[in-house]
Design a protein around this nucleic acid. Structure first.
Lengths: 243, 243
DNA sequence: GTCGAAGTGGAACTAGTATTCCGTTTGTGG
DNA sequence: CCACAAACGGAATACTAGTTCCACTTCGAC
């Protein structure tokens, strides 16, 4: 139903994020029975599709139906809707990470940086349904590595003189939040709208602009902001029935 | 609880939006009893405060409590939570309109335009809780006048050479959506964050930037986007219990 | 093949919320 | 002051959506 964007071929390294984690180490999971594993995948796929299309507010019953299983089965694998959402988000984050890694390989630091921004934009667009969760869920390994890569991308672009020096990584995070706002409003209607907006944003990052009137967020503030939104969001979904 | 922004005095003409509509024409309301009118105001004020602080997901029971009335009373005045939200949003829109009007009076078209952007930012910040509704609810008189004023503000800024010519009013709407994304994430944590982001955005609007790779939204697309978000939002709140 | 643990479906349970109902209270025109 | 329509409060209702339970299947090791 959602129109697919037409112009400006999307950056590479966005497809092919094989996420069939076989629980390599420590294995708290004693390997699932074949059919159970198959069902787990079906559920995850159905959830991803459902979230992308309808948002995380869609009922678990619907997801189970789309996956062709009963809710009981879904709950055996994901004891909570919240955990299911996190599993889907984890997949997207994995994709973000590989986009960041790919961008670091770019020969031009400037292009690598903007390519990364665009790649994240695409991922946000394609997973508009769980957008709010993307940058907010509990921190983890992948998120940390994304941050490291992001800082490095920014630093390289600044060193190359392509980005104004008074920007910090937290500004990039804010930029993603800003894109989110546009995408949430326009995803259904015009797949390209956010690209235009990103063009503007990228221009504003160039050096020799006017000084900024306000200081950037601190890393701590970003953490707090994420936590606050995460809490607010989690309260909306997955109502805790009892203590 | 929310910290109040410190620097950069907020534009004038944001306070003093007297909204005590006495139902001047057609009067479908046969004038409320004195106490009823008082309660209506208390409810509206409580709702505004509650929405601002906690978001529109807050329960009607809480609002009634804060207003010092029973839910029955609340429902007598606002037959639906949805209508209550709309009433609060209408107040904010009224404020947006007077900000636009004030900006039109500015002697410098360039400053008037950016002042308007900043004023809207402030209002979005102060009413972060019902932000999603601001630009999405059903169109109406006030919205139309806001749009007219906005178009005129943009046109004047462009005529004065302060804003690039390939921008259209729809880009301004997108800019507000973008600000919304930032504010929703940072309002609780850093009241100034969106101001920094807006600084960047404003810079990107200056002429002589690179050409944009994507066309702007059409007015029709903006309408559709608003409708889509409004529907999604309305489905979240005010569940229709029966037909 | 057999057997038991793991898996399955979906009805039933639970909690949270918007909304309604109704007996009681209160402002106000005559 | 009286009467009564309007307004009030809040318990009761209705409905949604997440989660649990359990009788029944099915995989896969021996």
């Amino acid at each position: 139903m959602r129109p697919t964007p037409s112009t400006v071929g999307r950056p590479t390294a966005l497809r092919g994020t094989g996420l069939g984690e076989p629980a390599d180490s420590a294995d708290p999971e004693p390997t699932l029975r074949r059919d159970a594993a198959r069902n787990r995948d079906k559920i995850l796929a159905a959830a991803r599709a459902a979230f992308d299309e309808e948002g995380v507010d869609i009922g678990v019953e619907v997801i189970a139906q789309r996956a062709g299983v009963g809710v009981g089965t879904l709950y055996r694998r994901f004891p909570t809707k919240e955990l299911l959402i996190e599993a889907v988000v984890a997949e997207v984050l994995e994709a973000v990470l590989s986009a960041a890694t790919a961008a670091l390989d770019h020969e031009s630091p400037a292009d690598g940086f903007t390519e990364y921004l665009r790649a994240v934009g695409w991922l946000q667009f394609e997973h508009a349904g769980c957008l709010t969760r993307l940058w907010n869920d509990s921190p983890g390994d992948v998120r940390d590595r994304i941050e490291v890569a992001g800082r490095s991308l920014l630093a390289r672009a600044q060193a190359a003189g392509a980005v104004r020096d008074d920007l910090v990584y937290e500004d990039v995070v804010v930029l993603f939040w800003s894109l989110r706002g546009v995408i949430e409003s326009t995803a259904m209607v015009s797949p390209g709208a956010w690209l235009r907006h990103l063009d503007l944003l990228v221009m504003s990052l160039a050096p020799n602009g006017d000084p900024l009137s306000h200081p950037p967020l601190t890393a701590q503030q970003v953490r707090e902001a994420k936590a606050a939104v995460a809490q607010r969001e989690a309260m909306r979904t997955g109502r805790p029935p009892g203590p």
